[in-house]
Amino acid sequence: MTSKTYEEVPRLLLRGSPYDIGLQHGKLLAPQILDQLSIYRELFRQACKFEWAHVRTVAEEFQAGIDRLAPGLLEEMRGIADGVQEAKLSLDPVDVLDIVALNARSEIALGQWDDGCTSLAWHISAPGTVKQILAQNWDWREAVGKNLAMVAIEQAGKPKIWMVTEPGIVGKIGFNSRSVGVCLNAIRARPISTSLLPIHLLLRIALESDSVAAAIATFEKLGGAASSQHILIADVNGARGLELSPRGGVYLSEDSNGIVTHTNHFLQNMLMDEPPWLSGSPVRLERAKTICEELIGELGPERLGEVDAKLLRARFFSDTFNSPQAICCSPDPDRDARIQTLFNIVMTFAPGKEPSAEVIFGKPGSGEESRVYAMPW
C-alpha cells in the first residue's frame, strides 16, 4: 500500500432507521463489500478449511441470537445486503447471511486466524490539561487495507458515531458524540457461543452508549461476548480494559499513571482455554509499557499535556522493536498470512470539549502512510 492509495479512503454519513443506514452502507460501499466477501471466502478456506456454505450455516446460528438480542442491528445488516444487491455489481446474490458472516467472522473462525493490534488508553492530568487519550494500531490482512472506510452514523435518540470500519461490518473502532470510544484486541481462546453477540456488534453497542459504565452494564445484561476479545473503552473520566468471553468478563483498571495498554493475550481473565499463540504479544505489551515510562520520564509531570496524537504516532505507534511482530506490524516472511498495521487512530476526549480523533492509514512512520484524517470531518 502506498500513501497515494490511501488518499481515496471513503468518508460516509449514514442516517435514518437501522434498515436505511444499512441500505446506504450497502449501496455506497458495494464494491468494497463484494471484495471483502471474496477475501474472507478465501481466508476461511485457507486458514480454517471452511467452505462458504459452512460459514453461512454457522452465521445462521448467530443470526438467531442477533435477532433476539440486537434486532436493530440485524435490520441494518439486511439493509446492507439489499444495498449491495441494488448496486447490481455482481451476478452472485448477496443476502443477510453473508453480511452476518462478515460481522461474526472472528467467532466463526474459532480462533484460527492470526492477527495483532496494540491499544493504549492514557488519562492525562497535567497543569492546564486534563484529557483522555484512546488509541491503537489495527493490524490485519494486507488485502483488507484497500477497502477500509470512515463512517459517521446518525440515529434518532442515540449519540452520533464516527468509526473506521471494514465495509459490511456494523461496529468497529471509533467514538461517539458523548466522548465514549472503543479499541479492539483479538484474543485466541475457546469456546465460542453462538447464542451471544459477536464482538463487532458489541463494539457498535458500546458506541451507542453514554458512558463506560453504561456500556459495561449493557454488556452484562446481554450476557457477555460470543468469543474471547479485549475491548479498550474510555470516556472523559477514564478507561477500562474489558477482557470479555462467553464465560464471563474481567475489567482492567488504569495503573498509577492512568494507563491501560493491551495486546493479544488475556492478562487477568483465566476463565477460558487460551493456549499461547502469538509470541510477539507479551513482547509488544512490555514494549508499550516501556515507551510510556520513557515518555513520562522525559516530559515529567509538568509537560505530560504534550502527549498527543502526533507524539504517540512518532514515539509509540511507529515503534518497530521485535519486528515483524512489533507495535508497528510488518508482514512476517516466515508466515503465509501477510499481516501488517493497516491504520492508526488516536482519539482525544476532554471535559467540556468536543471529542476528536486523528487517523492515518498504513504503517505510522513508514513514509508510505496516508495523510492525517480528522474525525469528525
Rank of each mutant, 00 (worst) to 15 (best):
Met1Phe: 03
Thr2Ile: 03
Ser3Ala: 08
Lys4Tyr: 02
Tyr6Phe: 08
Pro10Asp: 01
Pro10Ile: 01
Leu14Lys: 05
Ser17Tyr: 00
Gly26Phe: 02
Glu42Phe: 05
Ala47Gln: 15
Lys49Phe: 06
Lys49Ser: 14
His54Lys: 15
Val55His: 08
Ala59Lys: 12
Glu61Ser: 14
Ala64Tyr: 12
Ile80Gln: 11
Asp82Cys: 13
Val84Tyr: 05
Gln85His: 11
Glu86Ser: 14
Lys88Ser: 11
Val94His: 04
Val96Arg: 09
Asp98Met: 14
Leu102Val: 11
Ser106Met: 03
Glu107Asp: 14
Leu110Cys: 08
Gln112Glu: 15
Trp113Pro: 04
Leu120Thr: 07
Ser125Thr: 12
Ala126His: 08
Pro127Ala: 01
Pro127Gln: 00
Thr129Lys: 03
Ile133Gly: 01
Leu134Ser: 08
Gln136Trp: 06
Asn137Gly: 05
Asp139Phe: 03
Arg141Lys: 11
Val144Leu: 09
Ile153Asn: 00
Glu154Asn: 12
Glu154Ile: 12
Gly157Ser: 01
Gly157Pro: 04
Lys158Pro: 02
Lys158Phe: 01
Trp162Asp: 00
Thr165Trp: 02
Thr165Gln: 09
Pro167Trp: 04
Gly168Met: 13
Val170Ala: 11
Val170Cys: 07
Ile173Trp: 01
Ile173Lys: 03
Ser177Ile: 04
Arg178Lys: 13
Arg178Tyr: 06
Ser179Cys: 06
Val182Ala: 04
Leu184His: 06
Ala186His: 15
Leu196Met: 08
Leu197His: 13
His200Ser: 15
Ile205His: 01
Ala206Trp: 12
Leu207Phe: 02
Ala214Cys: 05
Ala217Glu: 12
Phe219Ser: 09
Leu222Asn: 10
Ala226Glu: 01
Ala226Lys: 10
Leu232His: 06
Arg240Glu: 03
Gly241Glu: 12
Leu242His: 12
Leu244Met: 13
Leu244Asn: 05
Pro246Phe: 03
Arg247Phe: 10
Tyr251Ser: 11
Asn257Asp: 07
Gly258Trp: 02
Ile259Ser: 03
Ile259Lys: 14
Val260Lys: 14
Asn264Pro: 08
Asn264Phe: 02
Leu267Asp: 13
Gln268Val: 10
Asp273His: 10
Pro275Leu: 13
Trp277Pro: 09
Leu278Lys: 15
Gly280Ile: 03
Ser281Phe: 04
Arg287Ser: 05
Thr290Trp: 11
Glu293Ser: 15
Gly297Arg: 08
Lys310His: 13
Lys310Glu: 15
Lys310Cys: 15
Arg313Ile: 10
Ser318Asp: 08
Ser318Gly: 07
Ser323Tyr: 07
Pro324Phe: 03
Pro324Arg: 06
Ala326Gln: 09
Ile327Lys: 00
Cys328His: 06
Arg335Phe: 09
Arg335Pro: 09
Ile339Glu: 00
Ile345Cys: 03
Thr348Trp: 01
Ala350Thr: 06
Ala350Ser: 10
Ala350Lys: 06
Pro351Ala: 00
Pro351Tyr: 00
Ala357Gln: 05
Phe361Asp: 00
Pro364Thr: 10
Ser370Phe: 02
Ser370Pro: 04
Met375Glu: 11
Pro376Leu: 05
